[in-house]
Design a protein around this nucleic acid. Sequence first.
DNA 1: CTGTTAGCGCTTTCAT
DNA 2: ATGAAAGCGCTAACAG
Lengths: 346, 346
Amino acid sequence: MADVARRAGVSAMTVSRALKGTGTVTPETQARILQAVAELGYVLDKSAGALSSKKTGFVSVLIPSLNNSTFSDTVHGLIDVLDTQAMQVLIGTTGYSRAREEAVIETMLQRRPEGIVVTGGRHTPRARAMLTAAGVPVIETWEQPAAPIDHVVGFSNAATVEDLMARLVDRGYRRIAFIEGGEGDDPRGEDRRAGYERAVARHRLERTCVIAVGRVPISMEDGARAVVQLVETWPEVEAVICVSDGPAFGAIMECHRRGWAVPGRLAIAGFGDFELARQCWPSITTVSVGSRDLGRQAGSLMLEAIAARYAGAPLSPRRVTVAHTLVERDSTARRASPPTWAGRVA
Amino acid sequence: MADVARRAGVSAMTVSRALKGTGTVTPETQARILQAVAELGYVLDKSAGALSSKKTGFVSVLIPSLNNSTFSDTVHGLIDVLDTQAMQVLIGTTGYSRAREEAVIETMLQRRPEGIVVTGGRHTPRARAMLTAAGVPVIETWEQPAAPIDHVVGFSNAATVEDLMARLVDRGYRRIAFIEGGEGDDPRGEDRRAGYERAVARHRLERTCVIAVGRVPISMEDGARAVVQLVETWPEVEAVICVSDGPAFGAIMECHRRGWAVPGRLAIAGFGDFELARQCWPSITTVSVGSRDLGRQAGSLMLEAIAARYAGAPLSPRRVTVAHTLVERDSTARRASPPTWAGRVA
DNA sequence: CTGTTAGCGCTTTCAT
DNA sequence: ATGAAAGCGCTAACAG
């Protein structure tokens, strides 16, 4: 920077101002500086700037896994918004493990993010303590924690599945099962199952039928295995909700292989509204939570919270509930065989 | 840090050493320092450390999009490896645009990454210049550029599709089409198409039949639209290769809807070996390039290159070719209807 | 094994 | 509108 300053015949400070574009520099000086920058191939060092200004320009985002279209959609939404303020998103993956989340938080804090977005509302005590002590805005997403750390942008996983159950009951299904992950920690999956169980009680259905397979996040193949197990265990079941669209898809494909009509022999629903749910044959009934929009909303709130904090008036904890939509498609239709065209684009 | 030092009765330097764990600190002192750290809730500031040591601990990775299981797998592989050395991956998305790539590179360089991984081998001249001038190891992936910037971990997209074509021809298919994206810049897609065209020439097939739809990256729905267009345009076509597994899946589902047997009426192959390709009914013939392993290999090479650079002996440009595998499944089998079980787990 | 000194490259603050 | 001085929090380098 000193080199640029010398070449442009100004002080380093003026170069700094010119590069930040605060407009407090004469157009001619500005031009001369940019010229020098170009000639020297100078690139601003934000690490140094961060140290000095105490603003790193980082926002940390913790998600269970990148290989999940749902969470990467949320991250995309966040980036969409944070990019406008030149904030860099630091992505950390926790592998569906609270212990790993704790470790990732510790590492992230060393980068002094100006805000932190986490997935879920359940953390180890130490993780929670670190997040609280960080002194920056924290947003918990994808859930609706009873005692939030700070802000929340989420929805009730249980409620979405209760809604879905109500719809299925409305369509005449009474013997409804639930497919979920076997091993591992998946709070959102557990909430969904709780919603299923509550609905079974509320609608006075005969019983709960839960098949647990694989390790979270459960795969398409797990869904395929589960549906076989389901039909063998409870042949009378008429419909099944899978904890996400992946296994729902796997289950449907397995039914095709075995010649079990969907929804004729068994109606199948998922969660998440993946692209594949709309394109599958039959198209899959699911719950859409607008993952990308969730990310955008978290991004906007984060920017607001960060600005408020620097303005000396920190935002009081906000709780944003994102809407979910039931997307009823062919996989749960009350028909003997899947249709050809109708409902293809739901 | 000074606070910690005072409380532990040592100098800041000793605290720094203790925290880095170089082992040059007495166990007792170490314990006293960690105690003080815990009591004060002190968190190391890596930004400051980076400025001082000139090692940021960042490696930048540029990918077209996070919402593509293929690239996020590669990123996961990279993180797997870089995490072991406490390197933080900075992810940048370019949205399949060279112009955006250039902009993202410029932003990334301000963070002084110790290495840069980019997707593809074609960049704007300025992007290329910046990468070269950055003075850190650069790895181009997912392609096999003729004139690499530095290192390469990739494969020939054209060759993979040529192999796939050879296999289809071997299986007796002669009228083979190709489905690709319409608008947008997708170098790897173009390479694959080039491979298709070369194969058409080599095997003296009658003609090339290319259907271009949508905007890159093309969706499942684009694949569905394309297959209809294909059958309408060239009803005599017996097999089609899609530029990726997504549209191949969409095409197959559309065939189901219309009652066109796959592979009976039309054989369909994809690229990428997504989870969905194995689980689909019929299972999809595809090319596997081991995206996650590609990421791991890039990660290892990056660590080596970074170490070599600090050792004063920069690695001379390396070219790693990752193997690809043809995964022949039911969607191209020479049978009238899809099988029930065989080949399900290819 | 531990401490001292200097300085990384920038921005804040205050002055002009 | 621009400059000078000081310092952000840490670590390299050297000394002891």
